[in-house]
Amino acid sequence: MMRILEKIGFAIAVLILVSPGALVFLWMLSLALKTELDNTAWPPVFIPDPPVWDNFLSVFARNDFLLYTWNSVVTSFSATGLALLIGVPAGYGIAKMRATRAAMLILIARITPGLSYLIPLFLLFQWLGLTGTLTPIIITHLVITVPIVVWVMIGFFEGLPAELEEAALVDGATIWQAFRHVAFPLARPGITVATILSFIFSWNNFIFAMVLAGRETRTLPVAVNNMLTFEQISWGPLAAAALLVTLPVLLLTLAAQKQIIAGLTAGGVKGG
């Protein structure tokens, strides 16, 4: 008897834990699939009946949504790719050298508010005449992606056994060869984790693009925020746009939950 009660209690606890997350996203979906009339009905209509796709169509019809999507894709892929290119070797170097101070610098980047980089960089990009292009947005996103990649990779390379590389070095390989042909292939799982996290936090970033983007260079979060400012009343298209922005990230989270949880559990990697 006690056991059954305990089990029921536990099931209720789990239900309470997952419902805030689930319900907000379900409500987002519901708003996106209802007509304007249903969205402003009182009492609220919960289940779209029948579901309508008009909101999604109007998002694409009334805004340069495809352009903003492209901007987001270019920014996140470039910022992640560049971060991997320089961050994976750096993680390796720091792990090998046990360079605590270099690691400390990464920590400071984690502590500093994103806005503080923006004031000087905003002026710098103005002087360089780079405003109005995606370049400044990609460069500032490195503030998020490089620390994530370096941090995950330090942990990963430290966990690898040193014997294999040492054997390669004894056999006459250069340090670069030992990295390229021994450590790097072994670190693939770590690189996957770093790539996913860096992509997600770059995709989600709002503040850098909000300050630096012009009309043509908005990323999706900025574009969606602008919709809120100018179209306060039409909830359907707003919710549809919000859903489209966050859907890639939600799907990626569901698909790669193991890697994401491993990466995040390792310790508070978060951008911004």
Partner: peptide, 15 residues
Amino acid sequence: FILPMMATPVAVALV
């Protein structure tokens, strides 16, 4: 449970 922290903050703020 971890979906909220992975979702795009602007999108959820809107909802």
